[in-house]
């Protein structure tokens, strides 16, 4: 790990010094123990802050999109001959590169506006899981020792196998190495267990309808509509989100449970062929809503019906932008 950090910093510093990138998005150590937080680096000296470890949770493609679209917007006020291109560098693991592929396919920015520093990924720690493993106690200090996390809380010290604390999406991840990169740091990471990826979904599919509905409503009742999931999601980048539109108003803002259910349904359904299973929405949700149970189903259907996995290849166009003659039609009602 030390070695990776060192290489990462060198590479980042070089890119900034040679002005290959205007800003570099990466992770730095967070203010709480066992956390990392996104950071934006413009000064080559600050590259020393960069880290790459099992506490880097958020999908940084979100910020790539934000920075480039804001920059483009700001350039509209500049005389055409004075307009500048802004190049954004990003530290990207597998799912981040999938989001970048998606952005490129959806024509959000051009390939020459980004520089990808690829990093291998062996999964990140799910803060909620970790917290549950220490009985919800405040984590005062922590460190990683090999395959274990040593966590100190008010009630004492505990050793936790890293694997137990990894996020669910990481454990069954199919693309833990970058899909594409300009520079690659470190060796390819060993595969996770993608063969298990739909086990949970299949079990849920086999439950009776009413149980599924009960689970859906139970989960959605937790939601406080803070929209943190939308803010964190790289695929949620509409300038005006349907939840904030008032003409027409697609979904009510009141306390009615159906409004929340409709909000969730619509956001989830906008993820067909677009959710890369990065888990960013799940990790930022303050209420612990089980969003993945529904997102992963969309991914499963998308693969079964259209043989597509979101952002997995530049050549494979987004599934909802094309159709094949032999697409299944068994859902069509023909009395």
């Amino acid at each position: 790990m030390e070695n990776i950090d060192k290489k990462l910093r060198e590479e980042a510093k070089r890119l900034l010094e040679e002005k290959k990138v205007d800003v570099l998005i990466g992770y730095e150590t967070g203010t709480l123990p066992l956390t990392a937080t996104p950071c934006f680096i413009t000064n080559p000296e600050d590259a020393e802050k960069l880290v790459w470890n099992a506490f880097c949770t958020q999908n940084l493609a979100k910020f790539v999109h934000d920075l480039i679209s804001q920059h483009r917007e700001s350039q509209k006020r500049v005389k055409p001959e004075d307009r500048k291109k802004k190049v954004v560098g990003v530290v990207a693991r597998g799912c981040t590169t999938r989001s970048i592929v998606l952005h490129l396919q959806e024509r959000q920015y051009a390939r020459d506006e980004i520089v990808i520093i690829g990093v291998p990924c062996t999964g990140y720690v799910d803060r909620k899981r970790l917290s549950a493993l220490v009985g919800g106690e405040d984590i005062r200090e922590g460190a990683r020792e090999g395959d274990q996390l040593v966590v100190k809380t008010a009630v004492g010290e505990k050793r936790i196998p890293l694997k137990d604390a990894l996020a669910a999406n990481c454990l069954t991840c199919r693309f833990n190495n970058p899909i594409m990169s300009d520079v690659m740091i470190g060796e390819q990471a060993p595969p996770m267990s993608p063969d298990q990826e739909y086990v949970e979904i299949e079990a849920f599919e086999n439950l009776p309808t009413e149980e599924r509905w009960a689970y859906f409503t139970k989960e959605m009742n937790k939601c406080i509509r803070c929209y943190a999931c939308r803010q964190a999601c790289p695929s949620c980048y509409c300038k005006t989100c349907f939840v904030e539109q008032s003409q027409p108003q697609w979904v009510g803002l009141g306390e009615d449970a159906t409004d929340t259910q409709v909000f969730q349904l619509m956001r989830l359904f906008h993820m067909v062929g677009r959710c890369v299973d990065c888990g960013s929405c799940v990790s930022v949700c303050p209420m612990g809503v089980d969003l993945r149970k529904f997102l992963k189903k969309i991914d499963k259907d998308c693969f079964e019906l259209f043989e597509n996995r979101a952002g997995s290849s530049m050549e494979d166009a987004p599934p909802l932008s094309r159709a094949k003659e032999h697409d299944k039609e068994d859902f069509v009602f023909n009395p």
């Binding site: 849920f204 599919e205 309808t209 009413e210 149980e211 599924r212 509905w213 009960a214 689970y215 859906f216 349904l265 989830l268 359904f269 067909v272 529904f294 189903k297 969309i298 259907d301 998308c302 019906l305 259209f306 599934p319 909802l320 932008s321 094309r322 159709a323 697409d327 299944k328 039609e329 859902f331 069509v332």
Partner: peptide
């Protein structure tokens, strides 16, 4: 495209527990 959206929507609504 519409056909693909319908196919996924129907499956999804069924999955969350709508008849």
């Amino acid at each position: 495209m519409a056909r693909r959206k319908f196919a996924t929507l129907k499956r999804f609504l069924d999955y969350i527990g709508l008849e």
